[in-house]
Amino acid sequence: MSDVSLTVNGKRVSGSTEDRTLLVHFLREHLGLTGTHVGCDTSQCGACVVHVDGRAVKSCTMLAVQASGSTIVTIEGLANGAELHPVQAAFKEHHGLQCGFCTPGMIMAATDMIAHHPEGLDEATVRAELDGNICRCTGYHNIVKAILAASQAMSKGSKGRAKQAA
């Protein structure tokens, strides 16, 4: 057993857990954050993607104790109160989800993708960067569309803010 201290969605949390507990299970079972899902055993489907210290990683392939001390954002922490994150809004607007199971991981991966491509995204890049997220419902068509739309909206938003600041 080890003590695990994390900042999750802006809140400091701690708990004691077996060393073998995966981060995803700590989030789901100890913190009740069940938006993060487990869809495979081989670190491929990406349903479990969360942000750990600003990077989108697979929480099924990391021990909770390994993450201790880190800052974590899960799907539950992405929106700003009632205001959806632009990626969440785009997934809804463009029908980028059906059963919803892969969706949290998709959205967390997509927000990271957009953040790491300040130059903007094209369809080929989005498809390549989604390599670690599997969806069985949508054929990816509308996921790609949603991410491209969100990327555009966010770059407009940041340019807009930059203008205001100037």
């Binding site: 954050l33 069940t34 938006g35 799907i75 539950e76 969440q88 809804k92 199971f101 969706t103 949290p104």
Partner: peptide, 19 residues
């Protein structure tokens, strides 16, 4: 029409059996 059910899924509020 954008889907009514989406809100819970995109915010992590879906409730599946494992939840």
């Amino acid at each position: 029409v954008a889907r009514k059910e989406d809100k819970r899924f995109i915010t992590g509020g879906g409730r599946y059996v494992d939840d």
